[in-house]
Computed example of a mutant assay.
Amino acid sequence: MMSPGPENLPSMDEPCPMIDFVNLISGKWAIPILYRLILINGPVRFSALQRAVAPITQKELTRQLRLFERHKLIERQVFAEVPPRVEYRITDLGRTLGPTLDSLAQWMRTHGQSLDRKEEAAIS
């Protein structure tokens, strides 16, 4: 992978786009939820999504899904049944994150064992 050329680099006066990106996907569960929805690439029920990213709590999954829905990264469909059935699916906009998340996953597969995780264990 090549570094961006000087013509693609923001000036030091411009706000860093990575701040907005990190704010969008901040939270322990944001990336695993989005990545799972991208991999599934179809409708998924809340309970199946919760199992797929376990051990996330129902409250945290709901909070994250609402945020993604507000940003138009996912769609939520409620079916008028008893009990109500709710399905989520990634939008076309959300799907554009696929290559970025794939590259992060590949980086972890390649370099994850090289990371010094002693500090992480002490923090947990």
Rank of each mutant, 00 (worst) to 15 (best):
G98F: 02
E7S: 11
R95N: 06
I40M: 14
D13Q: 15
P4E: 09
R63S: 08
L65M: 08
E81W: 00
N23Y: 14
P17M: 13
L93S: 04
F21Q: 08
E87K: 00
P99R: 00
S124C: 13
M18Q: 15
T57M: 14
G98M: 00
A122K: 12
M18A: 15
L101W: 03
R89H: 07
I123E: 08
E81K: 02
I31L: 09
L115D: 04
K28S: 13
Q64F: 10
V22A: 10
L73G: 09
S103K: 02
R117Y: 10
D92F: 00
S114N: 03
E69F: 01
C16S: 13
P99E: 01
Q106W: 10
R95G: 00
M1F: 09
R70H: 06
K59P: 00
E75I: 02
T110R: 07
L101H: 02
Q77T: 14
A122G: 04
I38F: 01
E120T: 06
R117I: 07
A105Y: 07
Q113T: 14
P17D: 07
V22K: 09
R36M: 09
T96S: 09
A122C: 02
S114Q: 13
A122Q: 04
R51I: 12
E69R: 05
S11W: 10
E81G: 00
A48R: 13
L115A: 12
R89C: 10
A54H: 09
F79N: 08
T57W: 13
N41Y: 03
